[in-house]
């Protein structure tokens, strides 16, 4: 199943790393692997990894991002999460 390009990521909603996904820390960030669609995705910064791991403790993606990076970087990380969402790595709570 693929997610159509029009389905949008809502950063004000609560998210978590999908249960079908494993994360492995690497020097550049992390590798994520979706066990069902077998997609391998690269998380290219340690900050993004921290945000993704922390998603489930916040009531929205916005809050999870603000806990790890300053506001000037906020939009960049919304885009990064949105692309992870399109790769089916994130699921709603």
């Amino acid at each position: 199943m693929s997610v159509s390009a029009t389905s949008a990521f809502d950063a004000s909603a609560p998210w978590q790393l999908s249960e079908q996904v494993s994360l492995r820390d690497e020097a550049f960030g992390a590798l994520a692997y979706h066990h069902v669609n077998r997609r391998l995705v690269f998380l290219k910064s340690p900050e993004l990894v921290a945000i993704v791991r922390g998603l489930s403790s916040f009531s929205s993606a916005h809050e999870a991002i603000d806990a790890h990076v300053d506001s000037s970087q906020h939009q960049r990380y919304v885009s990064a999460l949105s692309s992870l969402f399109n790769s089916e790595l994130l699921s709603g709570r």
Binding site: R24, D25, A27, F28, L40, F42, K44
Partner: peptide, 19 residues
């Protein structure tokens, strides 16, 4: 997987475990 040059450089230095 696209051909991201910076990522490729990282891979040339090896990973914590094989892919």
């Amino acid at each position: 997987m696209g051909a991201d040059p910076t990522l490729r450089d990282r891979f040339e230095h090896g990973l914590a475990a094989p892919i």
